[in-house]
Amino acid sequence: DVSVLRQLAINRGGMLTNELRRSAWPKQLGVDLDNISPKPDEETLKNHRDYTQVVMDVNRSLKRFPPGMEDEERYALQDVLISVIMRVLVNNSQLHYYQGFHDICVTFLLVVEEDVAFALVEKLTQNHLRDFMDSDMERTKNMLNYLYPIINKASPNLGEFMERAELGTIFCLSWLITWYGHVLNDIKHIVRLYDFFIACHPLMPIYLAAAIVLYRQDEILSCECEMCFIHSLLSRIPENLPFEELITQAGDLFLQFPPKDLSDEAKRIRYDHLH
C-alpha cells in the first residue's frame, strides 16, 4: 500500500535497506516494472544534442562511485549511466539535460539495475524534477525563491543577516537539483534523503535546505556578513549532520509554512542576482 510506504519513507531511518528500496521506490512512483519502454539503439542515443556533454560530465564524476570500485567495473557502470541519462532525454524531447542530472541518475543506478533506474528517473522527470529540465532556469529559480520566506518566518534575525550579506540562493542550487547527491559523500545519507524526497512534495529539498541553514544558524551569524564567506561555509555540508532530526524539522517546516502560503512571497522575490 503506497500510503504505508510513504509513511515508512518519511519516518526515522527511511527504507533502511536497498533491498526494500528496490521494491518500494517503483511502487511509490507508480512505475510498472513489467512495462518499461525498450532501449533505443545506440545510434539514436548518440545523435542526441546533449550526448557530448553527458559523456564529458559522466567521465569526470568519479567521486560518485563507491571508493573501492575497480576501474574496469566503474567504466562499465559509467557507460550504463550514460545510457540511462540518454534514454530519458531521447524519450522526452521536451526535457533539457542539466549538470547535476547525472548525480540523480547515478544514485538510482547504485541501488537498482539499468532498466529500473531509467524507469524511475523518467517518472521523476515528469513531476519532481520537471522544473529543472527547461531550457532555462526560471522555474528552478522560482523554487529556490521559497528558501528566504521559510527562513524569514522561522528565524527573522537569520533571514535578515543573510539578505544583508546578499547571499542569494546559489549556495543551495546543487542541493536542490541533485537532491544532495552532489554534495554528500556517504551514499547511505544520499539514498536516505531520496526515500524522503520521493515520498514528498517537489519543494521538500528546499525545506530541508532551510532546516540545514537554521541548524547552522550560530555558525552563520558568527561569520563576517559577507556573501563569499557565508557561501563558502554553507556550500560545504558537514558529513556529521543529524540527518534524521533535519528531516523531521524539514517536515515540520513544511506543515507550518506550506508552499501555498509562501507562493506569493516567493514570486515577489526578485533578487537582482537572479536576473
Partner: peptide
C-alpha cells in the same frame, strides 16, 4: 586532479601580499 562538473559556483580565497582575493 579530475574535477566534477561545477554546479552553481565555487569560491576560493587567495592571499596576495597584504590583500585578500576572492576567485569565483
Amino acid at each position: 586532479i579530475k574535477h566534477e562538473p561545477t554546479i552553481g559556483a565555487a569560491f576560493f580565497l587567495k592571499q596576495w601580499g597584504p590583500y585578500n582575493v576572492a576567485v569565483w
